[in-house]
């Protein structure tokens, strides 16, 4: 029997979760490092989706080499924002621009953010970056239109082309593609993953694919000792 692409299964799980009120959902991610081939498609998919400028990256893939020859191991570790249950980035924000939403996603209000970068300093995973207002194609004959195009985050459209576009000068990070979720779409890193190594869904739904895969394997989280209680797991 032909197996269904896991994207379709997760898409159905997502639709089911979206029926619930936000406080009943608990979005989580599982990354199967055995399946990740280090292609960086997720990183680039995300850069394109959110028109990320130089200095801003939401989901880099860390190339980890461990052990000594001949027992050398190479592993790829995609690193989104872990949407921590107890996020250390939130209490240091002096203006309350970053907060934990009802569905557990840690958001940034670009209108409120003053760009102090305290949250960047206090993320144990380096998951936050600073939008300094740079462009990849500046100092070229023309600034390319795609860098100035609009993008959707936190349910709103944003642009970076105005001198005072509030996203410039703000802290930025992965948000599990809030605006895509609202439209019933999986996060862009999940859909672009050619190894199908990233699972996404509602951790409160025992029947969801992500929970089933988590139950079947030995999962771990990064830097548990920081006390942030991340909601991104690795296998």
């Amino acid at each position: 029997m032909e197996r269904e692409d896991i994207l379709l299964t997760m898409q159905r799980d997502l639709a089911k979760a979206m029926q619930k009120p936000p406080e009943k959902r608990r979005w989580g991610m599982l990354i199967d490092t055995r399946k990740c081939v280090g292609c960086h498609a997720c990183t680039i998919g995300c850069v394109a989706e959110y028109k990320l400028p130089p200095g801003v990256v939401y989901r880099p893939v860390i190339d980890k080499v461990s052990g000594k020859f001949p027992d050398v191991k190479r592993q790829f570790l995609p690193r989104p924002c872990y949407q921590c249950e107890n996020p250390s980035c939130v209490p240091v924000c002096p203006v309350g621009a970053t907060k934990k939403e009802a569905d557990g996603i840690v958001s940034i209000d670009y209108e409120k953010c003053i760009g102090c970068r305290s949250c960047i300093a206090n993320c144990p995973y380096g998951a936050r970056t600073f939008d300094a207002g740079d462009y990849y194609t500046e100092n070229q004959p023309a600034l390319q239109e795609y860098e100035k195009a609009g993008f959707f985050e936190y349910g709103k459209q944003w642009r970076r082309d105005g001198k005072h576009a509030s996203v410039i000068g703000s802290a930025r990070k992965c948000h599990f593609c809030t605006s895509r979720l609202q439209k019933g779409l999986l996060p862009i890193c999940v859909s672009t993953c050619i190894g199908r190594a990233t699972f996404f869904g509602d951790l409160n739904d025992e029947q969801s694919l992500i929970k089933k895969v988590m139950g079947a394997g030995k999962v771990y989280r990064i830097k548990e000792e920081a006390g942030t209680d991340p909601r991104v797991y690795y296998i």
Partner: peptide
């Protein structure tokens, strides 16, 4: 110094009008 350092210096005043009491900086 810190005003100049902010990503959005003109919004720095928000710290007085919309402070987050969890932040020691506020």
């Amino acid at each position: 110094f810190i005003g100049t350092d902010l990503g959005k210096p003109m919004k720095g005043f928000l710290i007085f009008f919309s402070p987050a009491f969890s932040s020691k900086l506020a």
